[in-house]
């Protein structure tokens, strides 16, 4: 059995600045796995707080049509319109990366390909956002 690779301290990395060191790629920290985890947490928290607000604003349909229209109208101004691109971007990342996590958990080759799956997530995110963002921004700014 080889020595545990995840326990090397930062200072003990071989001093190779240009070439990737032998340790690179065996450490979890700083690589695709860590960044997908960080982004999953940040997007998750953002979506959760939006969800709390979104349930409350939709509940206004039970008050009066005027109350609901007043609040939903604030979602239609340009600043909120740009914010909605961020919200949808967070949701789309969280969705695709969540599917990546499921593949890592259940697919026998998931852990071996987790790094490549992260770039698949990024690729799908770009394609989805290209389909959404221009159309949404046209709606926000031209109607």
């Amino acid at each position: 059995m080889s020595a545990p690779t995840g326990t090397l301290a930062e200072g003990h990395r071989p001093a190779q600045k240009k070439k990737k060191s032998a340790v690179a790629g065996t450490l979890y920290r700083g690589n695709e796995g860590m960044w997908s985890w960080v982004l999953h947490r940040i997007t998750g928290v953002a979506i959760f707080f939006f969800l709390l607000v979104h349930i409350l604003d939709t509940a206004l349909i039970r008050v009066t049509p005027e109350a609901y229209n007043a609040v939903i109208g604030t979602y239609q101004n340009p600043i909120m319109g740009i914010g909605e691109v961020g919200l949808v971007g967070a949701i789309v990342f969280h969705a695709f990366n969540g599917l990546r996590i499921i593949l890592v958990d259940y697919w026998s080759k998931g852990t071996a390909y987790q790094k490549y799956l992260f770039y698949v997530v990024i690729g799908l995110w770009v394609v989805t956002m290209l389909a959404f963002a221009p159309r949404h921004l046209i709606n926000v700014f031209s109607h």
Binding site: I61, I72, Q76, G81, F132, R135, H136, V140, H143
Partner: peptide, 22 residues
Amino acid sequence: FGHLFVNLWVGDGIKAIDFAFV
């Protein structure tokens, strides 16, 4: 994705959402 597609992508998207739409 279905919710976002119907509410934000189809038609005039967010600009169409009001009490009558919901």
